[in-house]
């Protein structure tokens, strides 16, 4: 199979995931009780029959469901989601404006969490047992800590008590530190658990005995051989990782009163601003698909067995 066809297959399946997610969102939003017109003008606004009709026409709400669905798919394909009910701007503009702060946050956590996880794993995977035990307890507590409370506590300590870091968004790096840590810590804790489990598992594999029997020093055995194997189970968490990251931005942006997609999402849900919600759903599906593609590449880098099967020779 040619590389072109492989890429094509991937793209089609990616498009299918986005389409399916968007369709789910469309169907879900049809189940919302109440008249969307009131979501547009506000629930206690008085609207006349004609105004009501005009709004329905303007947003295409008078069309049959299937037409609305096709129109929705058409907008999805072209990246436009219509106008926000509340903000009176195109959804694409709303999302584009809010994208950067969220990207900063998510990117920071994406870098920080695996880094922390690897560092802690390496530091606690020596021969002595107690660092592992301590670390395991810390991980358990961090994993069990809801990110909103973690954020609030970090704020209380570092901003209110110690006054080291700004309370709210200032736009500079300092105001990014606490939100990034809040987002990254629980993820890092889970990754550490998985990495350590993987490392200890890998160290029981026969190839480790072989490597030791070569006279290889212990650090080389651990980090040249075993750590790479430990990365494999961690990579399977990619879907969870993306989801937690995106879900986490909703909470972290609210705790730290930062602007961003998460904030917009929560607002849109509160205001029943359906075009914005649909836009967010489509955006996360695209991010998810892109992340999975990236992880597939990473898999192939780490594990040659998953690369294109060639040259299997008989003796």
């Amino acid at each position: 199979m040619g590389a072109v066809r492989l890429v094509a297959v991937r793209l089609v399946s990616a498009a299918l995931v986005v389409w399916a997610a968007a369709t789910c969102a469309f169907l879900v939003l049809q189940l919302i009780p109440g008249d969307p017109v009131y979501a547009i003008v506000g629930s206690d606004a008085l609207v006349s029959e004609e105004q009501h009709e005009a709004i329905r026409q303007q947003y295409g709400l008078d069309e049959p469901l299937i037409v609305q669905y096709l129109a929705y798919l058409g907008r999805l394909a072209t990246g436009r989601f219509g106008d926000s009910y509340q903000l009176q701007q195109p959804v694409a503009t709303v999302l584009a404006d809010q994208l950067w702060p969220t990207v900063q946050l998510a990117l920071g956590a994406t870098l920080l969490a695996p880094l922390l996880a690897v560092l802690v794993t390496v530091a606690t995977s020596g021969r002595a047992n107690w660092p592992r035990r301590v670390s395991a307890v810390v991980e358990l507590v961090v994993v069990s800590t809801p990110s909103f409370w973690l954020g609030i506590m970090l704020l209380t300590i570092f901003s209110f008590r110690l006054g080291w870091l700004p309370v709210a968004e200032t736009g500079d790096f300092a105001s990014l530190i606490l939100p990034t840590i809040t987002l990254a810590l629980p993820i890092a804790a889970v990754l550490t658990q998985v990495l350590r489990e993987g490392l200890l598992g890998a160290l029981e594999q026969p190839f480790v005995i072989t490597a030791r029997a070569r006279g290889l020093p212990e650090p080389a055995v651990r980090y040249r051989h075993a750590l790479r194997h430990a990365a494999l189970p961690a990579l399977t968490l990619a879907g969870w990782f993306t989801g937690t990251l995106l879900g986490g931005t909703v909470i972290v942006e609210n705790v730290f009163a930062r602007s961003g997609i998460g904030r917009v999402t929560l607002q849109a849900v509160g205001d029943r601003d359906l075009p914005v919600v649909q836009g967010v759903v489509a955006l996360s599906a695209v991010v998810f698909v892109a992340a999975s593609a990236l992880v597939d590449v990473l898999y192939a880098v780490v594990d040659p067995r998953l690369r294109k099967r060639t040259g299997v020779q008989a003796a």
């Binding site: 399916a20 789910c24 939003l29 919302i32 989801g243 995106l246 909703v250 849900v269 759903v281 599906a285």
Partner: peptide, 21 residues
């Protein structure tokens, strides 16, 4: 595939959609 589509959305976002309903 339906499960996959829903898994493509962050669990929290899915929960938010349900709260809308």
């Amino acid at each position: 595939r339906a499960a996959d589509a829903l898994l493509a959305l962050p669990a929290l976002l899915l929960a938010l959609l349900v709260v809308l309903i």
